[in-house]
Amino acid sequence: MSVAMLVFIACGLFAVLGAVGLILAREPVHSALSLVLVMVALAVLYLLLGAAFIAAIQILVYAGAVMVLFIFVIMLLNAGVEVRTNLSHLARWVGLPLAILFLAEMTYSLFHEYAARTALAAGGAVAGPVPASTEELSMKLFTEYVLPFELTSILILIAILGALVLAKKESA
């Protein structure tokens, strides 16, 4: 087993554990911390895939800003332990088995079809030879995708305005 495989298994395990922790934790801060664990594990996987810039952005924006905002709001609103409600009968006896079936089916088909195809296409070896360089990525971002890029800046502006209007006290 190669080092890359070991790293993948460790990070994958951490990511799944974090995701399960997110669902099972009743304290919102614990959920948030589990999600941070998932994000850090995914960042390591991005590094493994040769996308160092995306890994850094993942940590910087997701773990460093978005999740900090989440925890800040949890602390600000003093969100206590979550109240658990029972599932409706429909959800428990029909929805849950269907969800599990869907997940299993997706996993099976992806594994089966895709593994066979990659094995055919590249003789078992996978992943492109060159790791993505930051320069190429930014060239792509500012030439081919320049319009979507500018649109996202407008989106962020709208989001800021929306957040400001929502969070403003009504009396003022």
Partner: peptide
């Protein structure tokens, strides 16, 4: 020695706020 050292440095230091937040909470 990384070609994106500056961004990595900002990324790591931006996670540093968790220490203070978690301590407070």
């Amino acid at each position: 020695h990384s070609p994106i050292a500056l961004i990595l440095l900002f990324a790591i230091s931006s996670v540093g706020v968790y220490g203070v937040m978690l301590a407070g909470w």
